[in-house]
Design a protein around this nucleic acid. Structure first.
Length: 688
RNA sequence: GGCGAGGUAGCUCAGGUGGUUAGAGCGUCGGAUUCAUAACCCGAAGGUCACGAGUUCAAUUCUCGUCCUCGCUACCA
């Protein structure tokens, strides 16, 4: 790509899902790097807009609301407030932090849908479906029962009769009934809209595979290539649900836009909201070819931001496409995957309470350890070491010793430099290279490297000071000490500018302490940051030592969590699914559950999760395919008895016809444990 | 299963269009020093660059295979 000069930069950060608080994984992979990048651009004096917001739609939020007996809006209100507040306290410098339940978002998403609709971009698929009027829901085929037209079995399903094995369509059933209410369902038309991604394959391929071969990260490029090579498929844009952005078409009462369509538009809505608040035009940020659009996301979001969202924007017609999508890998915690349901996380709101005033320590620990190219591990020991032996020992200590010396020898007034030695000049020259080095790394999204360079400036200062030995020289040549401390103070002043993107709170404290005016990136490395004679404030520690006891307490907290998790379900933090609706005893007796023996078991070729079981039911010997391969080995099962549903309609799985289903308990995390009788029973014994 | 990314010093990570002693920070050990929050500064030890085979005069870097981690994706009635 030819070098291009951009007029402005729009930076988005993935919208956090408003069903839980923010944790260090979110921070390390998205918000901290995005914030560093944005602060750097601002310091350079570039026009930049930093967009964030909560993603508040989708099924998990409705489930959570149902479980707690509150409305989805109440769920998202709670987490949105919490997330927004903790971001603010943490110094993530959004220009706007919006939310997708905001009316302006509904309007924006509707408009984009409508534009695409009017251009005829969507594929419309209409079908007649049975509809339960009492429950006001369309019924999937399997939620309809009736009499089989072939064998007159009175309890055939809408897709298949389990008695004679014929596959059916719901229309063929005699006396269809809804399984939700037991009523006779009515026929109703339902429509869904699809985005024909396959149609865009051509330009997407050219744009990404040819246009961004060199400037997109390997993980991002590779993932896109994989998708494009496979061939893209049309994707449904709408969904039958009542929480979300209503489909802006007639007769679509129960339909909303699918979250993946809705959420990224949130960036645009947020920009519009920003424009309203500040009386500014939002359009240049999304529609001017001279605007550079950057999406900060986690690696799980690559396809949406690199393929699907650009497809939407391009086909809409008036939007620009992202110039880069720096996707980060994941952050682990103490050697274990971060997990909200297992409460395995360091929560931002808790950190802010437990470590007041230490935002920068976490920012530093997460940046030096940012998962740029592969998954990384956050440990509390590492956090402590980063603080004690880097931030404190190198950065804080250099600033402190410089200020202490200045107070000791010159009553805290900036001394005027006299004649400079070769070493002085060389040090100044080296100092001048730092803004460029740090900036260069940041522009390539190399945050760890950039932060390392920033620290190298503090290292340069320490070395200079140690080599110059002003505490010795003062006894014989106080004039010389003036130059030494002037240069050291100059390095401190430069640090105040150059550390700001990474450590904004520290930068502020340092500026106050040295009574420095707000300076920009371009000022760094230039003389005149300090006026000789200028009075400095009293030195205060920028960082304080973090003791073992504090770290041990955090580790203990995690150990407790682990214990709670191992103690089993029943923990209050686990998200259980809400209760299903009441059924009659007759409904229950429709299930034919029996005790049967597994006579043989083998893995299904080409499937990760499937086992093919040969089951003696007492009545017959049949094949049942089951998705338990990740939890049970074939040999563990043979010869043992379990509970099976035997009257389930047959179904082909990976080409093998399965005649029933093995029963298992499933934990909230998805772990399966098979259900078996306590003692041996006759095969075919009923379970009731 | 398919695809993608990754597996480099005790820890966290750089790097390499193949070529003499493979880099950084932290940790460890030794030295020096006292302005400084036992911090700074100097020095050292530490790695068959996941494993196996192949191509090559030469591989950690290329090819193939295997194993492991993570993500996407299919199968879980």
């Amino acid at each position: 790509m030819a070098l291009k000069t951009w007029k402005r930069t729009t930076v988005t950060s993935a919208l956090p899902y408003a069903n839980g608080p923010i944790h260090i994984g979110h921070l390390a992979g998205v918000y901290v790097p995005a914030d560093i990048y944005v602060r750097y651009l601002r310091s350079k004096g570039e026009e930049v807009l930093f967009i964030g917001g909560s993603d508040e739609h989708g099924v998990p939020i409705t489930l959570k609301a149902r479980k707690e007996g509150i409305t989805p809006q109440e769920v998202v209100d709670r987490y949105h407030a919490m997330i927004k507040d903790s971001f603010e306290q943490f110094g993530i410098s959004f220009d706007i932090y919006s939310r997708t339940s905001h009316p302006i978002h509904h309007e924006t998403a509707s408009d984009i849908f409508t534009t695409l609709y009017n251009k005829g971009e969507f594929i419309e698929k209409t079908s007649l479906q049975y509809y339960d009027e009492e429950h006001q829901h369309f019924l999937a085929d399997r939620y309809i029962t009736g009499t089989c037209p072939r064998c007159e079995n009175p309890s055939a399903y809408g897709d298949q009769c389990e008695k004679c094995g014929t596959s059916l369509s719901p229309d063929e059933l005699i006396n269809p009934k809804s399984m939700l209410s037991g009523n006779v369902p009515v026929k109703k038309e339902t429509k869904h809209w699809y985005l024909p991604l396959d149609k865009y394959q051509g330009w997407l391929k050219e744009w990404i595979l040819e246009g961004h071969r060199d400037d997109w990260k390997p993980n991002v490029y590779g993932q896109c290539k994989s998708w494009l090579d496979h061939g893209l498929q049309p994707r449904a844009v709408t969904r039958d649900l009542d929480w979300g952005v209503k489909v802006p078409l007639p007769d679509t009462e129960d339909k909303v836009l699918y979250v993946w369509f809705d959420a990224p538009i949130g960036y645009i809505s947020a920009t519009r909201e920003w424009g309203q608040i500040h009386g500014r035009d939002w359009k240049p940020w999304w529609k001017d070819a001279d605007t550079r659009l950057i999406h900060f996301i986690g690696k799980d979001n690559i396809v949406f931001h690199c393929i699907i969202f650009p497809a939407m924007l391009k086909e809409e017609g008036s939007y620009i496409l992202p110039d880069n999508v720096p996707a980060f890998e994941f952050m682990n915690l103490e050697n274990d995957k971060i997990s909200t349901s297992r409460n395995w996380a360091v929560w931002l709101h808790e950190y802010l309470e437990e470590f007041p005033g230490k935002q920068d320590v976490l920012r530093y620990a997460l940046t030096t350890n940012a998962p740029e190219t592969k998954d990384n591990d956050f440990t509390w020991k590492d956090f402590q070491a980063r603080n004690n032996s880097e931030l404190l020992a190198i950065f804080g200590n250099f600033v402190n010793r410089t200020l202490v010396l200045t107070h000791k020898y010159f009553e805290g007034k900036v001394p005027a430099p006299g004649a400079l030695t070769e070493t002085d000049k060389a040090t100044i020259e080296e100092m001048k290279t730092f803004p460029g080095r740090i900036g260069g790394s940041l522009e390539q999204f190399r945050f760890r490297e950039a932060l390392g360079e920033m620290m190298n400036l503090a290292r340069l200062g320490n070395k200079y000071l140690t080599d110059a030995e002003p505490w010795k020289v003062y006894k014989t040549d106080p004039e010389r000490v003036k130059a030494i401390l002037n240069i050291s103070l100059d390095i401190c002043a430069n640090l105040a500018i150059l550390c700001e993107p990474f450590l904004p709170f520290t930068a502020g404290r340092l500026r106050t302490m040295m009574d420095l005016p707000e300076r920009k990136w371009k000022d760094a490395g230039n003389p005149g940051l300090l006026e000789p004679g200028q009075q400095l404030g009293q030195p205060e520690y920028l960082f304080e030592k973090i003791e073992d006891s504090v770290i041990d307490a955090q580790i203990q907290k995690l150990m407790d969590t682990k214990k709670e998790n191992e103690a089993g379900a029943g923990g209050p933090k686990i998200d259980l699914k809400p209760l299903k609706e009441t059924i009659t005893y007759d409904d229950f007796t429709k299930l034919d559950i029996r005790v049967c023996t597994v006579e043989a078991a083998e893995k299904v070729e080409g499937a990760d999760k499937l086992l093919k079981l040969t089951v003696n039911t007492g009545l017959d010997v049949r094949t049942i395919v089951s998705g338990i391969a990740q939890y049970y080995k074939p040999r563990e099962l043979t010869g043992k008895q379990f509970c099976f549903v035997l009257n389930l309609a047959p179904r082909k799985l990976r080409g093998i016809e399965s005649h029933g289903m093995i029963l298992s308990g499933e934990s909230p995390e998805g772990t399966l444990i098979l259900v078996a009788p306590q003692e041996w029973m006759e095969n075919g014994s009923e379970v009731k």
